[in-house]
């Protein structure tokens, strides 16, 4: 049961974005649409799990004086592996995430977990911690991406999950209202497909702060601190 907690704490109680609030740079920059955000989440999770496991493995061999450079070497190796793999197999994602994949090297959550958790805990616990942190990060950054994309452009893109076309939420809502109106005999009510004026600020950097702020408030309401 305690093990299970190691896994779930990263998802909600100690969520890396909403509670630990480290490494927000990548969260802000890569959440302009759902697809980029999800891709960033996966890349981050890979690095998180890999570095946590390796750091836990070598925690007894590495002397304290040089642990930081060794951790950074471990992290940057995993980052370069995922960077090259994305370039090779998801070239379009690599194009839109650009420099933010290599920048995971200096992401404070990864470094923070290595220093604060996996350098003091067993391999299995560190692995579970990494998975939990990865899931927590991916879920929240994707949620931010979805909210920003809907408010800013009226669509949801998730080609990584096999959705070829964008989901046009704005048109979908208009269609629903029109169908409903027709069904209950209010045929003269008609909503134009482009009824929603995209709110540009949500895909610009300030929009990310707004969305994260509201999510943090919501999270705080669900999981109040003692």
């Amino acid at each position: 049961m305690k093990r299970f907690k190691e896994l779930t704490k990263g998802i909600m109680r100690e969520n890396p974005i909403l509670v630990i609030m480290l490494g927000l740079c990548a969260t802000l920059a890569c959440s302009t649409n759902a697809n980029d955000a999800f891709g960033m989440g996966i890349a981050f999770s890979f690095v998180m799990v890999g570095s946590n496991v390796v750091v836990a493995l070598i925690r007894k061999i590495v002397p304290g004086q040089i642990r930081i450079p060794v951790f950074i070497a471990v992290i940057s190796t995993f980052v370069t592996i995922i960077d090259l793999s994305i370039q090779a197999y998801q070239p379009l994602l690599s194009r839109s995430l650009g420099v933010f994949i290599p920048l995971i090297v200096v992401n404070c959550i990864v470094m923070g977990r290595a220093e604060a958790y996996s350098s003091k805990n067993t391999v299995l616990d560190s692995f579970l911690d990494g998975i939990g942190m990865g899931i927590g990060f991916t879920v929240i950054i994707t949620l931010i991406g979805i909210i920003r994309e809907i408010l800013g452009e009226g669509t949801i893109t998730l080609s990584l999950l096999g959705l070829k076309d964008k989901i046009n939420v704005v048109e979908g809502i208009a269609g629903l209202i029109n169908n409903f109106a027709a069904a209950v005999g209010l045929g003269n009510i008609h909503v134009a497909p482009d009824w929603y004026p995209s709110v540009l600020i949500f895909i610009l950097p300030p929009g990310a702060f707004l969305v994260i702020g509201f999510l943090m408030a919501f999270h705080h309401r669900l999981f109040p601190k003692e």
């Binding site: 450079p69 090259l84 090779a88 070239p91």
Partner: peptide
């Protein structure tokens, strides 16, 4: 000497694994 040795080994392992990944991904890129 011990510290330098450990850093050296870390670097060597990292470089070795990265060159393997590079070989694998070079063609598709």
């Amino acid at each position: 000497i011990k510290l330098v040795g450990i850093l050296f080994i870390t670097g060597a392992i990292a470089a070795g694994s990265l060159s393997a990944v590079y070989q694998l991904t070079r063609e598709p890129i």
